[in-house]
Every structure is written in C-alpha cells, then in structure tokens.
Nucleic acid binder design. Structure first.
Lengths: 218, 218, 218, 218
DNA sequence: TATGAATGAGAATTCATTCAT
DNA sequence: TATGAATGAATTCTCATTCAT
C-alpha cells in the first residue's frame, strides 16, 4: 500500500477529494464487475484497486448492489452521450447506415466492459436497471435517428420500405454484440482468432454488407 | 412424493440409480448456473434442487467447476445434436436458410439456459470449454452445412457470392441472441413487450427478411 | 484448540454428536448472551466456548437471533418445568406461599442467566418471544396454583379476600428480580453488599414477611 | 426546520450553542441507549438523531462509554431531583407511604428509559456507575425519608416495627419495575393488556394494598 | 451409493473512532 | 465550534469442500 499522495492545489481540496474518491471507486468497480460479473466481483479487490479503504465504498454506495447500479448508470450515460454526438441526420442515408454500424462496432470494441456489464445485468433479469429511474428514461437516441434515415432513404427511392427501426437497431447491435461478447467461445469452437485485426475488418464489412444488401433496392 | 425405497439387488439397478442421480444433479445445476451464473451459483441450492446430498455432487463431479463443465458439455451436446437432425442439405437453398434461421430462433426461445451459460462461459474467457475435449471436437455442423447451402445457392445463381458461412452463422445467432438475451433491458428501454406473441413473430420475419434480402440476387 | 475426543459407545454416535453439538452451542450461547446481552454477544466467542466451528452455529440455528431465541426457549422450558414440579397444591396455604416465595428467590439466585436473558428480551420489547409459539403457550403454572392456594386460604378464613393471583405473582417475582437483577447498581448506591450471605437471608425473610403480612387476616 | 445560522458575535452566544449541542446529543443518546442498550446503540444513529456531526460527540464526550456515563448521570440526577422534591417528611405516615408508592410508579411510567438504562448498567455490573463520583454521592434521599416515615409510624403505633427501609424501597421499586419493564413478555404470557388504563390503576392499588397491608398493625 | 456433521478461508458489512480543515 | 472524509479492526454470515460412517 503506497500512501496516496494528496492532489495538487488547495482551496476546494476536500470537495474534490470526495469526488475523486468516488470516481476512483467507480473505475475500480467497473473493472472488477466487468472481469468477474456481479457474483464473482470482490469488494476487497475493488477497494484495493481504488487505493481506498473498503469502508468508504459503503459510505458512498451503500452496498455491493448499490455500487453495481452506480457503475451501470455511468456506463449507460456514457454510451448514450456518445450516441447523441453522432450526427447522422446530416448524412446521406447509405453513408448514415454505414456510420451507424461502424460506430456500434467500434464502441463495443473500445468498451468491452459495456458488453460484460450488460451481460451481467441480463443474467439478473435487469433487476438493477429496473430500479434506476435514471437509466429507464435514457432511451437510445439512435432509434429515432434510424427512423429518420430509413425514411429519407425510402423517399429517395434507394431503401426498401417497411423497415422497423427498432428491429434494425437490435439486429445491428446483436451482430456486433454476439461476435465480441462471445468471442472466446466462438474463437475456440471455430478455431479462428476472431480478434485478429484482419478478422475484425472482415466482420465490420460483413455486417455492413448484410445490412445494406438488405436495405438497398435493386 | 412417494418415498423412494432404494433397490439393492442387482448391479444393473444400482447403476441405473447412479445415472438417475447424476441426471438430477445436472438438471439442478443447469437451472442454478443459468439463473445465477457460475459465480452466483450455490452448491447447496443445487443439492437441494436435486433432492440429493451435497457430498454426492463431489463424488460425481469433483468440484463446482467440474460440475459447470459437465453442464456445459451436456448443453453443447444437445444443441449440436439437434443441429445435426436438421437436414438442410436436402433442402432447396432459400428454404434451407429460412429453416436455419427459424431453428436458431426457436432453439434459443426454448432453451434460454443456453444463452446464459454461454454468457457465463464467456465471462470466464472460455476457460472450461478450452479444457473440454468433448466440446472441442463438436464443431458446429451447421457451419459446414451453411457453406454447402451457400454454395448450392450461388451455383444456382440465386445467392450472392463471397459470403463467409461463419460470419453469416454468427450474424444469425447474434440477432436472435441479443434480442432474447437482453429482452428485459430492451423491453424496458423501448417500452415494448418484446416477448409478446406478435413481437416474436415479427422478429423472426425481420431476421429472415434481413438475411434473405442480403443473400438473394436481384 | 484441542481435538475433540469422540464420545463413548458407537451405534448412534452420529445422532448423539449432533445433539451434543447443539447442546454445547446452546450452553455457550446462554453464557455469552447472559453476560453481554444480545447486542454485546459475539458469535466468535460462542463458537470458541462451545469448542466448535462457527459455521456450525449457523448450520443449526440460522442466525444470531435464531440462536438467541433457541436459548430463550430452553431457558423458559427449564423454569416452567421446575415450576410444575413444585407441589404447592398439597400444602397448607401459608406454607405454600412461603415455599412459592422461596422457590422464586432460589431459582433466580441459582439461575442468574434467566434474569439477564429476560432483561435482554425486554430491551427488545419481547421481539423474539413473540415469534416463538413454543414460549407463548407456556403459561406459568404458578398462577393457577396461586389462585388455588389463595382460594383455600380465604375459605379457611386465614387469607384476605380479593387478591388477584397475577398481581401477586408479579409482585413476588418483581421483588426477587429487582433485587438480584440490579444488585450491582443497588449495592453500589446503598454501599451494602446485597449478595452477602446474611443479606440474602434477610431479603428472603423480608419478602416473606411482606407478602404474608399482607395476606394473613388479623 | 428553520435553517440555523450560526451566531458568531459574542462568546456568550457561542457558549449557548455549545450547551444546546450537548443537550441535543444527550437527548439523542438517551433514546438510543434506552432502545438498544449499550452494546446495540450506534454512534451514527445518535449523531443523526441529534442532527449533529458524529465528531462532535467525541469532542464533548470522548467515547461511547463516556457518553453512556453522561447519560446515566443525567438520568440519575433527574430522578434524585424529583425524589427530593417529594415532601414526605411533612406527611402523615400512611399517606407518605401511599405517595411514595405512587411517585415510584408514576415516575417509571413516565420515564421508561430509566428502567432500560438501569438494566443496561446492571448488565455491565455497574461498571460506569462505579466510576462516577457524581452519582456515587447521590444516594437516594428516599431511603432516609422512608426510614423517618417508618419511624414516625412505628412510634405512633400504626406501623409494625423492624422494617428495613432499604428492603422496603427495593420491594416497592421492584414491584413497579418488573411489571413495567417486563410488560411486553408478561402481557403476552398472561394474555392481558397490562398497559390498559384499568390495569394500571389496579396495579397501583395492588401495590399500595400489599405494602400497607404489611405495614399497618391490626 | 449415499448422507449428516463439520470446517477453514473468506465474503459482505458494520462500527467506533480519527483526520484534516 | 463544527464537519465531511477516511480508516482498521471486527462482526455477522457464507461457501465450497471434506470427514466419518
């Protein structure tokens, strides 16, 4: 245990420390929950990773489940935040779909913890999520955007009609999620390294081809 | 509950009891692992669900991990068995794809434990799978079959060329898996009952449309 | 930790061990709860005193509160058992009252743990007792006996009329209970050793004088 | 709750705040100790109930035990104060006894916390009391007064001789204490509401009858 | 084959108390 | 005088596993 070196300036040190401690705990917890799931995570390890006393976790987050929920909320906030920043409405429909797919793919690639946390939460039948008003109202803005893109494409005569944006969103997310979330079993069974650079490139283009092959008329 | 009097006459009878006990344990364990994951599962609960003494689990399966592996193996055996029974090679290509999609969809629907076990195993980076010779040799026969179907379709001039059967298989599985495995969170977030009968019918046809829309030329 | 030497005979050894372990735990728990109260008692100390693994306590009694209740029940069973063995109905009324008082006094003296446990339970507003069907139906047989004795005394013209046996029982118990249960504070405040042999003799005769002085006519 | 703005002008004001804080803490602590005993009391809850920071408790009272002692001292001061205010020496002996009994009864009724604190302190073998010079010199003035009343009664030929005032005091206190302190268990066991108004009236008259029946000659 | 009893290591959580300001 | 942040040492309870029969 190295003694924590106190932060820079002074004035608001205390307040900043509290915030900092909470952030450190959340960071450590996210790692731990992502690598071991809710059941396998250890409060001791979280405290150690955070470089803080275990008691402090309870001081701020009440319980293991409370901490898990806080991590989940932060994770959702982040992805929803990035989704909002995408500006697909300005884009030409085909290009918009391309970017949507590659955003999803790249986000999951960059944030493997999101997949594992989602997995854990689903194992528990969304028990924590259902308690969180915060998350429940955070509808993915992508669905709205997809609806708009599909509409523009259809009116331009390039996309087929009658596509449900929710179904499409789930399909795109599912294709990326299953590949990346289950890459260990899949790699083993198919005896292929699914995380090799080439494999990843191929996957993204397969997904794009699949979706556009379906959407585009002719 | 009729009181089970233990028959002790013949070796055969004794053997049948042993088999029965092991099956009871595996059934109970499958439920438990599927509902709580490997970390959250409790040996006590498994013994109780199986109606057998905890010690017996160790007698037959050595350890919790051993038991988990046994459950995993049985689960894989079952799905691989059913996959073999599908006789897609006899089928006309378009119809074969249709049946493949609906088989996957219905199997996941009927066996939600398969999704959760896969989930758990991936959390552990396929650690158990890699140790199992049994599973490793059970490469999904579907991939071979899909390759064949795609090939026949391409040669008949109805399917597009250059489709990787593994990619396609993962896409189909992923579209079903994500929808069903995350239905709790998705239902809440989209404010739609994804498990309503109508919703399920729509999902299956969306998946079929998407894949065939991509595969079929013209 | 000396290794526990296994009990004498054989045949029913296992069954006897379980019973023995439970008894050892209850004995240890009674000591611990009596000396420290429910809040101050330590499960670790109980296990150590019992010479058994802490886990076993939970195996048999579920929780600290469950153990406390079990101790309470056994304690009540014991005093109610001894009360039943008193045969006051055969006795001449005055003598019966004398023996009742001295029984109460001597029981409390011999079982200080009864006082402390009662105290603890009352601190918790009889929370555990109320959950115990066992204790709730164990009405003190003394009240019935007192009613009978009072009645015989009254009809014989030696006791005053209109004495409520419950009130009398509570008074007798209270006089003994308060003296013995609070002897530490009382001894300190009055600067008298209330537990000196002479003091105890005097207390019993005071109590007897008080009650008989009230009951006897003339 | 009006927001308390801290006055910082004069020393006097500051001092008054300090007194107020200490009182708030003692009030909260009395509640907490009375409801949970020393072992079960929680410093956090006391701070919360007092609406003050936990650290302040340590500033004023040093430790949990120090706080307990302070509560104990205040409680004793109060009852001793009220006892002094009774003016039994002016009273005719029979009436004095009556008033003594009813004072004791009513004080315990109005101050149930006194019973519980006594209870806790005895569990700890009067450890705190013995350390408190304050309490040690506060001998109950009642004993002296009782001695005087008994003496006057005896000389007037109405009371019996040879009654020890300490014994009598303990008996009176005990009759009230046991009834009120154990009313939860007793009510349940005897299936009578011992706190019903009528029951309380009856108890007081039973106690008075018992004591006077004993004291009065003829 | 089957089981009730027992355990050591560890898990989450709690608690009185102190630090720093 | 007052407080939010932080902690070490327990404390209750849990868990996979083994013993003894």
């Amino acid at each position: 245990m190295t003694k924590k070196i106190k932060p820079r300036q002074s004035t608001e040190t205390r307040a900043r420390d509290a915030e900092r401690s909470q952030k450190d705990i959340l960071d450590a917890a996210q790692d731990e929950f992502a690598s071991h799931g809710l059941g396998g995570a250890r409060m001791d390890r979280i405290a150690e990773r955070a470089g803080l006393n275990k008691r402090l976790i309870y001081y701020y987050f009440d319980s293991k489940e409370g901490l898990f929920l806080a991590v989940l909320e932060r994770t959702y906030e982040r992805i929803r935040g990035e989704e909002k920043a995408l500006n697909l409405s300005q884009e030409e429909p085909t290009e918009a779909i391309r970017r949507l797919i590659s955003f999803t793919w790249n986000y999951y690639l960059a944030h493997p913890e999101f997949l594992t946390l989602l997995n854990s939460e689903n194992l528990h039948r969304a028990r924590h999520l259902k308690k969180s008003k915060k998350i429940l109202t955070m509808h993915s803005p992508l669905v709205q955007t997809i609806a708009d893109v599909l509409d523009r494409g259809r009116r331009a005569g390039i996309f087929r009609a009658g596509v449900d944006p929710v179904q499409l969103y789930i399909s795109i997310a599912g294709m990326a999620y299953f590949y990346l979330g289950n890459c260990h079993t899949l790699s083993t069974i198919f005896d292929r390294d699914l995380l090799a650079t080439k494999a990843k490139v191929e996957r993204l283009s397969h997904m794009t081809d699949l979706v556009l092959g379906y959407l585009l008329r002719d």
